[in-house]
């Protein structure tokens, strides 16, 4: 299996007034294709910073990140925007849906930026809604949906572009355990089906069981990487609302 992302000597320093805060240092990491990774660590460990840099949301202070043969650390704002549009999907903890748009419109936003024809957007969006099981709620605004439903919409939005890597930042942080599990199943099912790479950031160790690799992060360093051999089998058919 090929490597989709290679990270070398990554360092990120934040300036808080006069003080320097080292968020990440000496991080080397290879991400393999079609695998599920879990970045696990307490808050303040630097796991979100790592995720943000991998997704091209902020530049590293030092070191390199390459996606296939693209050098993400060397890209400018506009190239990063293109990179995100073409290759990555992003799921937020707080869903971050646009409140004025309905479910379908929220899901098809990435297609809107791609300049896809409205009719095609509608078709693809409805298929996606069907896949995540809330097809009948396509007209609903975010405020008219439950947290679980909102996160499904957010999920669908990340997948609609058919990206290479999906980044999920605490995707179940705002959900109850039952919904969180359903959510994880749904996410893993989609990733496997579409042969995509998934990187989840969490401080919840229970989620780690779903991943192929668990990357433990502590104080800005990778502490250890655990391969989950006895991982639970993911059953596609058990997805339900």
């Amino acid at each position: 299996m090929g490597k989709i992302m290679i990270i070398k000597g990554l360092r990120k320093v934040y300036r808080m007034g006069k003080e320097k805060v080292i968020a990440l240092d000496h991080v080397d990491l290879d991400i393999e294709e079609e695998k599920v990774y879990c970045l696990l660590g307490p808050s303040g460990s630097g796991k979100s910073t790592l995720l943000n840099m991998m997704a091209g949301l902020e530049p590293p202070t030092k070191g390199s990140i390459s996606f296939k043969n693209l050098k993400i650390d060397k890209m400018n704002e506009s190239d990063l925007a293109n990179f995100r549009r073409r290759h990555i999907g992003f799921i937020f903890q707080s869903y971050n849906l646009i409140p004025t748009l309905n479910a379908l419109e929220n899901i098809t936003m990435p297609l809107l930026f791609k300049g896809v024809h409205p009719k095609v957007r509608h078709k693809v969006g409805m298929e996606m809604l069907d896949a995540i099981g809330i097809k009948d709620r396509w007209r609903h605004k975010p405020t008219e949906m439950s947290g679980g439903q909102q996160q499904r919409v957010s999920l669908a939005r990340a997948f609609i572009n058919d990206p290479d890597i999906i980044f999920a930042d605490e995707p179940t942080g705002n959900l109850d355990t039952k919904t969180a599990n359903t959510m994880m199943m749904l996410m893993l099912g989609l990733v496997k089906e579409r042969r995509q790479t998934l990187i989840i950031v969490t401080h919840n160790e229970e989620l780690a069981v779903f991943a192929d690799y668990v990357i433990h992060i502590r104080d800005g360093n990778i502490y250890e990487i655990v391969m989950n051999a006895d991982k639970k089998k993911v059953d596609h058919s058990t997805t339900e609302i």
Partner: peptide
Amino acid sequence: VMKVIGAKMKD
């Protein structure tokens, strides 16, 4: 959010 999900700067 729009920027994260792929809006171009120009858009």
